[in-house]
Simulated assay, not measured.
Amino acid sequence: MSGVVRGASSGEIVGILLAAGRGRRFGSDKLMHPLADGRTMALAAAANLRPACDRVVVVLRAADHPLAARLVEAGCEILACPEADGGMGHSLAAGVRATADAAGWIVALADMPFIQPSTHRAIAAALRARASLAAPQYQGQRGHPVGFARQWREALSALTGDHGGRDILSAHRAQLVLRPVDDPGVLMDVDRPEQLPARPQAAPSTD
């Protein structure tokens, strides 16, 4: 399987899709859970992120995850993070260290598969317009994904625990560019199966 992460080129916006959590509250591997359109949650999240970025790196617990080959086929690169049990910070730090020459990163979550591609593009555009930090806003609420410019490389690379980039955002709110979007998916993280939209029912037979 190809798709092993290579170093980033200067000027690239890299999407980092965090997909190394265990999803204990979901009750099973939620990355593999099929959505109403038949795609798994992780593949849908990756497909929505990919058009906005020069590259997408998916951080998994192990390189032999059952979805790894399909993610590579979708144009993503795979990064294994054995330290993922330590929390989201470890996964994010690993993704940034592996692409340390990037101009910026869009950090997305594999359990938020309903974010529209246009939202990811809006965050990428903010980074390319030299925003330091960027995030979407839906009906007054900040959502995901979050964009980080290159200046945060060292801070992101040193993350541990389960805070991700939250502390950076909290400490530097004045630098955060909010992009209003008409996309409720930016607030829809899936922790339990009942949070997923119901699958459409098949039309009754007319035979």
Rank of each mutant, 00 (worst) to 15 (best):
S2K: 08
V5M: 04
V5S: 11
G7Y: 03
G7L: 10
G7C: 05
A8P: 08
S9C: 13
G11N: 12
E12F: 09
E12D: 12
I13N: 11
G15M: 12
A20K: 01
A20M: 00
G21C: 02
G21K: 01
R24Y: 00
R24N: 08
R25G: 00
R25C: 01
F26W: 06
F26M: 06
S28G: 10
S28W: 06
L31R: 15
L31G: 15
L31Q: 13
H33D: 03
P34V: 07
L35Q: 06
D37M: 13
R39D: 12
T40N: 13
T40M: 05
A45P: 09
N48H: 15
P51W: 11
P51D: 10
C53A: 14
R55D: 11
R55V: 08
V56T: 14
V57M: 08
V58I: 14
V58D: 08
L60H: 11
L60M: 12
A62E: 15
D64Y: 09
H65V: 10
H65I: 05
H65Q: 10
L67P: 09
A68M: 04
A68Q: 05
E77Q: 14
E77V: 09
L79G: 07
C81K: 04
A84V: 04
A84F: 08
G86S: 07
G87R: 04
M88D: 03
H90L: 02
L92M: 06
L92V: 09
A94M: 03
R97T: 08
A98H: 04
A100D: 11
A100L: 13
W105M: 12
M112Q: 14
P113T: 14
F114Q: 08
Q116A: 15
T119Q: 09
A122K: 12
I123M: 11
A124E: 09
A124R: 07
L127E: 07
L127N: 05
R130S: 13
A131D: 08
A131N: 03
A135L: 04
Q137T: 08
Q137W: 00
Q137H: 00
Y138N: 02
Y138Q: 02
Y138R: 02
Y138M: 01
G140D: 02
R142H: 00
G143P: 02
G143Y: 01
P145W: 03
G147N: 06
A149S: 15
R150T: 08
Q151G: 09
A155K: 06
A155T: 11
L156E: 03
L156K: 04
A158D: 11
A158R: 10
L159M: 09
R166W: 00
I168D: 04
L169A: 01
S170C: 01
H172K: 02
H172Y: 06
Q175M: 12
Q175L: 14
L178F: 01
R179H: 04
P180S: 01
P180D: 01
D182T: 01
D182A: 11
P184R: 02
G185M: 00
V190F: 01
V190G: 04
R192W: 06
Q195R: 13
L196I: 15
P197N: 09
P200F: 04
Q201W: 00
Q201N: 02
A202W: 04
T206K: 08
D207E: 12
